[in-house]
């Protein structure tokens, strides 16, 4: 038993150093767009645009009329657009960043904060399967997104958030500059 306690004490000593589990918005943007210029933009959707986004995402709720997004450019070319989506997983919220590539496909997802027990958080590798996925029927737990046993609610919430973001991105992209986007 003494040996076991000694091992446990050693493990605790190793883990006692500080560490950051989640990302801030700024850190997430730096991670997604290294050496890029990131510009924050605001879009004010019309009711018609809100409904169009809802229809595209197949979401139950109408999206907010206010959409904040971050456009990253490098050498004058857009390299991606980031959106932050906060949603409820089980009873607590999660905030993720969804990066959309210039072709309108999901490029990257990062978890910024997760208030549920981490047992419900899929592994980082799981989020990789969203890369390159456009907004279509494949972006679904029943099709192209593989679920995770024991984290179904998080998987569902993340997939819905990705659909929501891609739908909003599409609606904003369709709108003439100045109509839905901020100055």
């Amino acid at each position: 038993m003494n040996r076991i306690l000694a091992v446990a004490a050693a493990v605790l000593a190793v883990t006692a150093t500080d560490a950051k589990v989640f990302l801030s918005q700024e850190e997430a943007l730096k991670l997604a767009f290294p050496a890029a210029t990131v510009e924050r933009k605001t879009a004010f959707l019309t009711t018609g645009q809100q409904r169009a986004a809802q229809a595209l995402s197949n979401d139950e709720a109408l999206p907010s009329a206010l959409v904040v997004y971050y456009v990253a450019t490098r050498d004058g070319r857009t390299v991606g657009t980031a959106y932050f989506d906060t949603h409820i997983v089980r009873t607590m919220p999660e905030t993720i960043m969804v990066v959309v590539d210039p072709a309108g496909r999901a490029a990257r997802i990062e978890v910024l904060s997760f208030q549920e027990p981490e047992d419900y958080l899929p592994r980082p590798r799981w989020y990789g399967q969203f890369q390159g996925k456009p907004l279509n029927d494949e972006l679904s737990m029943k099709r192209g997104i593989r679920p995770v046993a024991g984290a179904t609610l998080t998987v569902r919430a993340t997939t819905e958030a990705a659909r929501r973001v891609l739908a909003l991105h599409e609606v904003i992209r369709r709108a003439p500059v100045g109509e839905a986007a901020s100055p």
Binding site: K20, S24, Q25, E26, R40, V68, F84, T95, L112, S113
Partner: peptide, 19 residues
Amino acid sequence: LGAEIEGLKVGEAAEPSDV
């Protein structure tokens, strides 16, 4: 106002950590 609303929505993750 837009920035503030975004901060409210995103919550703690909106807080820059190292500036």
